[in-house]
Design a protein around this nucleic acid. Structure first.
Lengths: 219, 219
DNA sequence: TTGTGGATAGTGACAAAGTCACAGACATCC
DNA sequence: GGATGTCTGTGACTTTGTCACTATCCACAA
């Protein structure tokens, strides 16, 4: 079996002949953190499977505001790349590595060929695709209907993840939520006033997880 | 050839055996305007091709705010249905007919079988899928980065479409844009003050298309 | 140790958008 | 006409975003 295939359980049962072809036609790449993989409007001509590290997909407005749409992690395919290959359209957002990233690159031809010939690959592609799309619907719902303090509380809980201190700047949080830095500062200050956390430069110390959780809960 | 296939140019070349199967296994349905086709959380067990009329796909917040995500028109497939069939997950939004709608319903089994056996059908499904996804990215961008007056101007231009009067309520516009009725009223009043339009109950008379277009343009 | 420059954060004033609680206006239908 | 329901208008207030600064922190060099 191809060494890297164990990162993708859904592909482990890939047909033998297909595996042979992959071995011959794909290549492993490595990017440093902060590398721009693709940007809005760029054409797409390869398929991408991430082995390690994370890629952040985000949109930037002409005025410089940003929002993180989703992340691609180990064992995942790049949905945008999939879409762009399927529709032969340019990228509608940008992708940046958040850490060193190892990935497998497939030529466009192999992608289309596999789509035509391998039921297992098809299942893999469209499963991932569908799930990501459902995430996008959830994102729209959040952005349109949910108050910023609630969204910030959710993000803090997500980032803290049993650790007590979160290391990130207000600007990073603003980008995550598609908001403005000043607004994050204000809201964090409000949280601090309530004793829920303590702010420090470049980090946040969580003091009252239950309170955050209560605000974050949909009820 | 199956009578309804001419609505779907991309499927007209569908394999002969496939057409035979469709004829035997699909059925044409008709819904009145305002019929709820599916709602958030509902399971999905059929594929859907629209022959005539329009289906509106939207999300509703617990507080009652709404946003229209996209519409399905003649010759189009329902992307949500596609996603839900592919991932076997429940619907993440709701669908309502905006007019009487005629559609072809495929059983789930046939959908999956065609996906496995017909390259032409696959191409059709994933092309539509990809394009709709790109629309969703554009929607997120609009909602997060674009001022409401600009979005309203765009929507008015889209609805006027060379007619001079638009027949719709402020509530409808609010739902289209994921905003609140009062905000639409206020913004329309501002537009009227500038002489761009004239308001009437349930309708809007467009007076200065170029001015609206100027506000609507991305520059 | 001190300085200093870039990254972070804080703040006040204001604008834009959403919420709430009403009050009118309009359009039908009897 | 009046009654009823839909649609619109409005003021007061909250939340969020924008702008223009200032203040602080922190790493590294002098």
């Amino acid at each position: 079996m191809i060494e890297w295939l164990h990162h993708f359980p859904a592909l482990e049962t890939l047909e033998h002949s297909a595996q042979k072809q992959l071995l011959a036609n794909t290549q492993k790449t490595r990017w440093d953190m902060g590398h721009s993989l693709f940007h809005t409007g760029a054409p797409c001509n390869q398929y991408l499977l991430v082995l390690s590290g994370h890629i952040k997909v985000q949109q930037i407005s002409p005025e410089g505001r940003e929002i993180v749409l989703y992340r691609i992690g180990p064992g995942e395919a790049c949905m945008l790349t999939t879409v762009c290959l399927l529709t032969r359209r340019p990228y509608p957002a940008m992708g940046i590595t958040e850490s060193p990233v190892e990935a497998i690159i497939w030529p466009q031809k192999i992608f289309h060929q596999f789509l035509d010939t391998s039921p297992i690959f098809r299942q893999f592609v469209f499963n991932a695709f569908g799930e990501r799309l459902i995430d996008m619907f959830a994102l729209i719902e959040e952005v349109v209907f949910t108050r910023l303090d609630v969204r910030l509380a959710r993000k803090l809980l997500e980032l803290s993840e049993n650790k007590q201190t979160i290391r990130c700047t207000h600007q990073v949080l603003a980008t995550e939520l598609g908001s403005a830095r000043e607004v994050i500062t204000r809201t964090l200050k409000e949280f601090e006033l309530r004793g829920w956390l303590q702010r420090g430069s470049g980090q946040i110390l969580i003091l009252d997880t239950p309170a955050l959780r209560k605000l974050a809960s949909p009820a």
